[in-house]
Amino acid sequence: MKNIAITQEAQGAMTPDSVLQDLLDGNARFTGSQSQAVDNSALVSQTTGGQFPKAVVLSCIDSRVPVETVLDQAIGDIFVARVAGNFENVDILGSMEYSCKVAGSKLVLVMGHEACGAVKAACDGVELGNITAMLDNIMPAVKKSADEVEGETNSSNKSFVAATVANNVRLTMDRIREKSPILKEMEDNGEIKIVGGVYSLQTGKVEML
């Protein structure tokens, strides 16, 4: 049973690789219907005075991808930033910098997901209110996929959508490094890793890119 929150000492002993493996192990428990039992009351009590999460995850808002659940993490384990299409912006970059530079997290995971509605909308050039400006963030991935995938360049082409989901994760990782000198320096120094993966709605598994 998970009933002990991460302490500062435990967080300090972790490495980026060990944290990544921990999240992948959690995902394996989830897909194997072996998620750990959690004593939420104990974790709430232990984290009242502070928190020492091991990772920050950037994911889509999709209701089918509850991040803590699919990675089998509990209270105090991970930071989670969510926006439709899992792209970075200044607020999310600041949140990631806080997570790693201030709060000591060892890993940044950008996690896209299969058949993402925001990606599909970007593929189709949807224009609607504030959604239009939001989808602009995904268009670089759409354009990259258009050069790589044969067939229709819209959401009717499942291969095109899948490629765009993966390219969106990769380009988001690139922009995190480009736009955040803090995170890039931490990664260059081996203090953190910036990684990406795609969650399968069909299997519940996270495939790393």
Rank of each mutant, 00 (worst) to 15 (best):
168 N>D: 06
205 K>V: 12
95 S>D: 07
32 G>I: 00
54 K>L: 12
206 V>H: 08
53 P>E: 01
75 I>C: 01
59 S>C: 11
99 S>N: 06
125 G>E: 03
10 A>R: 07
140 P>A: 15
197 G>M: 09
107 L>T: 08
158 K>V: 13
34 Q>P: 02
189 N>Y: 03
107 L>P: 00
134 M>I: 07
122 A>V: 11
56 V>F: 04
103 A>Y: 07
90 V>F: 09
209 L>W: 07
83 V>P: 11
155 S>H: 09
101 K>A: 15
201 L>C: 04
209 L>T: 13
131 I>T: 12
31 T>I: 13
178 E>N: 14
43 L>E: 11
42 A>G: 02
148 E>N: 05
138 I>Y: 13
37 A>I: 07
70 V>Q: 02
144 K>R: 11
205 K>W: 09
40 N>S: 14
175 R>Q: 11
16 P>K: 05
48 T>P: 06
145 S>V: 00
154 N>P: 08
207 E>W: 04
8 Q>C: 03
157 N>T: 11
124 D>L: 03
135 L>W: 02
92 I>K: 00
85 G>S: 05
56 V>I: 15
90 V>K: 11
140 P>L: 07
70 V>L: 13
6 I>C: 04
126 V>P: 03
152 E>Q: 13
81 A>M: 08
114 E>I: 00
135 L>V: 09
173 M>G: 05
93 L>Y: 05
195 V>D: 01
123 C>P: 06
44 V>K: 14
186 M>T: 07
19 V>Y: 04
172 T>G: 05
60 C>T: 03
185 E>G: 01
131 I>M: 10
4 I>G: 03
63 S>E: 10
148 E>I: 10
117 G>M: 09
119 V>K: 05
13 A>D: 12
200 S>Q: 10
92 I>D: 03
194 I>D: 01
7 T>V: 04
34 Q>N: 04
39 D>K: 01
14 M>K: 08
36 Q>S: 15
126 V>M: 09
21 Q>D: 10
120 K>R: 15
122 A>W: 07
130 N>M: 08
103 A>G: 01
10 A>Q: 11
95 S>W: 02
41 S>G: 15
62 D>T: 06
19 V>L: 02
76 G>P: 00
44 V>W: 08
54 K>Y: 14
158 K>G: 06
60 C>L: 04
208 M>C: 04
169 V>W: 10
102 V>M: 07
44 V>S: 13
130 N>G: 11
99 S>H: 01
72 D>Y: 11
96 M>N: 02
78 I>N: 12
32 G>N: 03
166 A>H: 00
54 K>Q: 14
96 M>C: 01
158 K>N: 12
178 E>G: 01
107 L>A: 11
161 V>M: 01
